[in-house]
Design a protein around this nucleic acid. Structure first.
Length: 208
DNA sequence: GAGTAGATCGGCT
DNA sequence: GCCGATCTACTCG
């Protein structure tokens, strides 16, 4: 099993701070998501993301700059977590991107488990190490112990319970784009290919 | 394997 | 009062 101390801090945060959320969604692929919940450390490699382009994007909670208590974190600085509850059951984890007051976010849809897989399985009540463990936004949050209490946390701080890091050796991979799912209400955006995955990675949900 | 109902609750109209 | 950036279990075959 990989030791989590082999992960490195990310120096190049420029990609997250700049305006292009699609670029940010691609850049996040291959990065490491780590949680430390009361000493239980789990980590995984991000293999699937979706871009949500704030004010212009009907599929985004911040469409037309809708600013409420819930969406407020998206208007904050990049590199923070945006966690919300969906369907009354599932937590969804996003990385806030873009300049302050530009409410862009990238939904993390799948990770490849690397550290603390036993803890993940326990949280998911699963015996086997199979894709169902961490593929899909709700599932990966459950596996990593991400709840709404982890909303608006600094992902770049080594003090945080939830952090973004990178691997020492970054492997080269191909990226496949496809339309986003679960946004049938956002008519003109249904076809926009803003869902990104690492090609042929088994920890992704099937591409359409 | 494909298709679908039911779960469950906060946010917003 | 409606409904969602989903998941699971159950049906049918």
């Amino acid at each position: 099993m990989i030791d989590h101390s082999s992960f490195l801090t990310i120096e190049d945060w420029q990609v997250l701070h700049q305006r292009d959320v699609v670029k940010a969604a691609n850049w996040l692929l291959g990065k490491i998501l780590l949680t430390n919940i009361k000493g239980s450390i789990t980590a995984g490699r991000i293999v699937e993301t979706e871009a949500y382009q704030g004010p212009d994007d009907r599929a985004s909670h911040a469409f037309q700059n809708r600013r409420t208590q819930r969406t407020e974190t998206m208007f904050g600085p990049a590199g923070y977590s945006y966690v919300y509850l969906c369907y009354g059951i599932h937590n969804m984890f996003n990385v806030v991107t873009g300049p302050r007051d530009t409410p862009h976010a990238v939904l993390i849809r799948g990770i490849e488990p690397l550290v603390g897989t036993e803890i993940m399985q326990k949280r998911r009540k699963m015996d086997a190490l199979e894709p169902r463990l961490t593929s899909g936004p709700g599932s990966l949050c459950q596996a990593m112990g991400i709840e709404r209490s982890l909303n608006n946390r600094d992902l770049t701080s080594s003090e945080s319970q939830i952090q973004l890091l990178k691997e020492e050796s970054q492997e080269v991979f191909e990226i496949v784009a496809s339309p986003r799912v679960g946004i049938s209400y956002a008519k003109e955006w249904i076809k926009t290919p803003w869902r990104f995955r690492i090609k042929d990675n088994i920890w992704c949900s099937p591409a359409k």
